[in-house]
Design a protein around this nucleic acid. Structure first.
Lengths: 350, 350
DNA sequence: TTGTATGCGTTATCAA
DNA sequence: TTGATAACGCATACAA
């Protein structure tokens, strides 16, 4: 325990125990098969006396496998991503893997840099939650022959395991709840679609829902809300309200994720509208603040921890040799009803 | 570029360029000193043709230094921590270091595990934002002779660089603002003090402020709010209100961080009080939702990115040989005034 | 059952 | 200026 600055190596242990390095290594890796007599004892005490821990770097170099799993996050600032990270981390830890994180910080051009960095550390597989803007980068992972699992966002041309919220179920949940609550003119507000599969899918499922009998005479549109453009959002909201009034319906917004939910909330302040009364709102993504903004914001919680856990699970199974066809794992969301989707006295909006 | 599964090694490059491994290594590391003639050319093209990248693991093994910096976070779920992480990451990247993250997930008993894991990867220094509950673990870093910088939380007996919000300035900012806004009976609500230096410091600075002339006839107390115990918080708030009424003052809360701010907000809902009117509130830690909860919540923003940047900076300077005495870097917060600290019509609370 | 020798991908020391 | 070679810490094939 009382050790000088440098970490003990396997040679130190061997010397101290009066055995060879190979024996120490065997004690560490093949304890059961090549059992030693009382030499194991000596090695064991030497190890604990020296506080010896094998160097994962040297092990990786020798074995060709690192017990590292690479996790690429588009934006660690996003609570969704962090929650997924936690789930994945726990599953990996349980399986003896360490998660090596690479945060893109929303700089899509770093996508390949991230994968290269992880690759240089010989990670054994990748969990990707990126923009998918740099197909070359992601293809590189496939080329390496290392397993990949995508979270939340599909990549064109990459046929691998995929773990995500069941967007159809989530959209259905939002829409039917809103309709049952009395709202009849819907707007799906989303971040700009771009190539992000989850955004696109939510819009498509929304449109599919509207085309269904379940929608009744409900009408709906969608709107892409860009980061700085408050005016466009306000206009879309006003237009929604106008359509609703003309049709004798109550207007409501489904926001496609927490970022957009916050934008809609901000718009309420600008427009002087009250959630639930002047307009309905249910947002995908539960947040800690949802219960306390306005009358409380109705949300659909994603099973974020589970998503991360599943992602890790998929990867680890493939690492263990499971070679089935790519899986698609879609987990359901759960609805949290709050004031933002309770029309107070039936449409008293101006 | 067109490569088989395995990554190219320095030997591949050497073979391709028709030189020795040593030459390739020199090209990579000592380009200026031992300049080669047109051999450099050959090496250069071979490298790019093969898409060769040195293995950081092998480099670390040989050099004894990893260009890795270990970052231990108490809870990555906390936006404060993530913001610090981002700042630190950017500074490290600029200096050619990679951040290796270890998240404690608030499990304090993992503190030593985290440091050991990082240590096994031969990180060259540590940025620590932990509970400090496991002194042994942290001492271990010191024993290793590797530089350490503490963020937000001091550790007893560990005399190293420290980067943090200027708690005195922040508390003064909150208190004087509240007083100027007309509030005279203050309550500092904090998470249980335990051994967390930042919490303790904020309480002490609060008490110091009250003892000062600046406080005038203002009175104040502090309250430790435990995670599940809503009743205690409600009681503390009611008692605050009672004291205020008796003294003919307006009551206000300073919440010590974002977690507590949210608890106070939740209490408002339970008690049926309105922020700003029935009670004032200013919280340390800016959040994305602060503008939209109730009348908007006044906050003090921490310069989180800067904190992270400074932490990395300190570490890197020591890594480069700077051996001065431990530094204390205290950065000021900035006040964001919103509705929660604007008494509407002078104390119309019951 | 244990020890010796070799190699993983690098860098650094020495000769050439 | 360049090329063998040893060594970093470890795991394993082989020999003892």
């Amino acid at each position: 325990m009382t050790q000088s600055a440098a970490r003990a190596t396997i040679a130190d242990v061997a010397r101290r125990a009066g055995v060879s390095k190979a024996t120490v290594s065997r004690f560490l890796n093949h304890r059961e098969t090549l059992l030693s007599s009382e030499i194991a004892q000596r090695v064991e005490v030497a190890i604990s006396e020296l506080g010896y821990t094998p160097s994962p770097m040297a092990q990786a170099l020798k074995r060709g496998r690192s017990r590292l799993i690479g996790l690429v996050l588009a934006d660690i600032t996003n609570p969704y991503s962090v929650a997924v990270l936690r789930g994945a981390e726990m599953a990996c830890r349980a399986a003896g893997y360490l998660v090596m994180l690479f945060n893109l910080g929303n700089e899509i051009e770093r996508e390949s840099a991230g994968i290269r960095a992880l690759s240089s550390y010989r990670v054994e597989g990748y969990i990707l939650n990126t923009m998918g803007h740099d197909p070359g980068a992601v293809m590189e992972t496939a080329r390496q022959g290392k397993p990949v699992v995508l979270v939340d966002r599909l990549h064109a041309g990459l046929d691998v395991d995929f773990v995500s919220l069941d967007n159809r179920q989530a959209i259905d949940l939002c829409a039917t709840h809103l309709i049952e609550a009395g709202y009849g003119e819907l707007l799906l507000a989303t971040e700009p679609l771009g190539t992000v599969s989850s955004r696109i899918e939510r819009v498509q499922e929304f449109q599919a829902f509207l085309a269904t009998g379940a929608a009744g005479r409900t009408r709906g549109q969608y709107f892409e809300s860009a980061a700085g453009d408050d005016a466009a959002l306000d206009a879309a909201l006003r237009s929604l309200s106008t359509r609703a009034r003309k049709g004798g319906r109550l207007p409501a917004v489904i926001s496609s994720n927490a970022v957009v939910t916050l934008r809609v909330v901000a718009a309420m302040a600008r427009l002087g509208w009250r959630l639930g009364e002047d307009i309905g709102l249910v947002g995908i993504d539960e947040t800690e603040w949802a219960p306390y903004v306005g009358p409380g914001i109705s949300t659909v919680s994603q099973p974020t921890g589970e998503l991360g856990r599943w992602a890790a699970q998929c990867l680890i199974e493939r690492l263990d040799g499971g070679a089935a066809a790519p899986r698609r794992i879609l987990l359901p969301g759960t609805l949290n009803v709050r004031g933002s989707s309770r029309p107070a006295a039936a449409g008293k909006h101006s």
